[in-house]
Design a protein around this nucleic acid. Sequence first.
DNA 1: ATTTCGACTTAGGAACCACAGT
DNA 2: ACTGTGGTTCCTAAGTCGAAAT
Length: 767
Amino acid sequence: MSSSDDEVVLSKRARPAKNSYQESDEEDDTPLADISNGNLKEESGKKRKSSSKNSSKPKKQKVKKEKKEKKEKKEKHKKSKLKTEVKSEASESLQTPESSPIKKKAEKEELKSEKEEDDEDDDKFKWWEDDTYNDTNINGNGEKKWDTLEHNGVIFPPPYEPLPSYVKLYYDGKPVNLPLEAEEVAGFFAAMLDSDHTKNPVFQQNFFKDFLIVLKENGGSNVEITDFNRLDFTKMFDYFVKLREEKKSMSREDKKRIKEERDKFEEPFKTCLLNGRKEQVGNYKVEPPGLFRGRGAHPKTGRLKKRVLPEDITLNLGINVKIPEPPQGHKWGEIRHDNTVAWLAMWRENISDSFKYVKFAATSSIKGLSDFKKFETARNLKYHIDAIRNDYTKLLKDQLMQNRQMATATYLIDIFALRAGGEKGEDEADTVGCCSLRYEHVTLKPPNKVIFDFLGKDSIRFYQEVEVDKQVFKNLRIFKKSPKQPGDDLFDRITPSILNKQFQTYMKGLTAKVFRTYNASKTMQDQLDLIKNEGTVAEKVTKFNAANRTVAILCNHQRTVSKTHSTSIAKIQDRILELKWQKNRLKKIILLINPDEKSKNSKFFKGINELNKTQIKNVHKIVIERMIDQAQKKRLREKEKESLTGTCAFTDEDLKKKLESIKELQQEYAEELASGDPKIPKGASVDKLKNQIENLENRITNTQFQLQDKEDNSEVSLGTSKLNYIDPRLIAVFSKKFEVPIEKLFSKTLREKFNWAIESVDENWRF
DNA sequence: ATTTCGACTTAGGAACCACAGT
DNA sequence: ACTGTGGTTCCTAAGTCGAAAT
């Protein structure tokens, strides 16, 4: 969604401003003295004020420049900490995860597990069957993530390919001669001229600023460029479109050959050697340069994302392994041997000055194990959730403001699956989570209705009108009480880190995000429990998807409705109408053949006139148009064949005849519409017709079902919860118990990622 | 105590691909 | 055989959270 869209949404939003109803607090919601602190929080009210007007945000004006120096200092420290300590750390720590990892099959492994010698290399290593992964510290909870690591570095994007000299950027209609570096940047913009990014003024201006910088740095151009709006990228755009098309229309063989060559080249980068075993690497390609596509109203959207050079890259690998060759004429930025981390390479990115990592693939043992641990932690929450809910319910009335806020926030995180919501900077999109909710994001409707309306992660809107616990309602009212006003934090005495610290007192590893995982998986299990083991596989899959959907809705996983959505819905509706028309028409024919049928089974003929004349007329039109269209297309195809082979199965003459017969049919339909009675086709019999009708009825229900599903799914994204939140063992169990092939529930990559779950789980497993 | 950093998970959209329906 | 279409994979942005730095 473009930023201008966001603005629309924002302005549409209800601005609570002043709540009309009067506060009539009873004991429970008397405002609380802030015992906690002697109000060092006084200034919290000013925090974000900004929004638009009166800002003067003094807040975190930290001097950004000094960063560089710090950085350098730190590198030194890092170096020294390497391997020596690893050994010692390794042996201690390790409390082992709560419920012991999958033990099944452990016996069988006994013989070979000793030292886990042989089974490497055959790239089917099953960490979940390996005892050493249960209670040793290989990628354990301690520091050490690996013993040895060897890889071939990373793939860099191809160098810039200059435009042919006849393709230019224009300014005031004049061709501009650009230095290559600037041409590349202009090309980034031109190439995406058909996306809405390039229509966003923030994107345009950010791009333009960086473009001018690059232009100046590289000697400028023949034309003085000062105004973005006088630039014309269309010639460049057209050229890119042409390139795209050429690529698309390449012959099948050429495409295949190119793909094979590429695969061969990439092969060495796709895998690495982790503890002597071959493992997949995830993103082995360095991100190419381009224009930053921030989501939502990101202040930096459109900025130039610079090309990453080998000199920018830090490689991480084992101490005694071969260091991959850097590209010709280049050197690696740094070589590290840090086995406390799980990345192979890293670089600093210039938009927000943060790191990008080359990591293992989701199928790797390292990722698999940490995924497994994530779910075990979430699963462990079931033993504590009652106590936690009990406590926060009580603490909702606590005298200490901080405790009340903590309890209220926990309630929101637990019940509505909100994210923690850390502070964000001025140079990022304004999005919030629980702890960063502001006055204007929550509207209160007595007695206990709350409307949440804010932009969450990825600027996805969270809008819910809900009823909440009485005391939660009272608390929210207190948190909004004057002098608070729009722009102020609701939860001004807590942060995610305070919350998380509290959570840890209940359970090791418990943080705000664990609630999302727990509630998602718990919901999935409950939903799956409701499904009866009956019907076809397809039906069970549909029900499974419906369960998946409730989870996605819980987590607010959305997707923007596709541009073609409404037309494709309309198409399906048309098809349903057409099927109904056919069905009713056949019924009418039955009655024409044998009027007695009606008294025999009046129910059967009940909806026979469900379509009105306009609808029928419309169906007629669609049917006729489609026939004409098909005939003409057929002729076109044959024409081509004719020009090649000289023979032709469908001549212009044939087409003409065909069109005439369609005309006749059209005429018939018109008469039928007037009289209400169709013509009886030759050879029709009541039995045959009934058969056809049954067929149609099936198709109608199927299509209607399909339509419903599509509608329901149009703005819900099921994938995210399946990938990140639903314990895959739940799905594996469902597959087994309900005899639904796992292929119907997990795509190939998901099956690989969750192989540990699929292979280890037994039918009675519960989350 | 608070802020920043570093490493990792979570997220939606674009690009790509396989396949059903004509 | 062709072509939309929907599902899958790729891409990388945007979160979370513990630890280090101040």
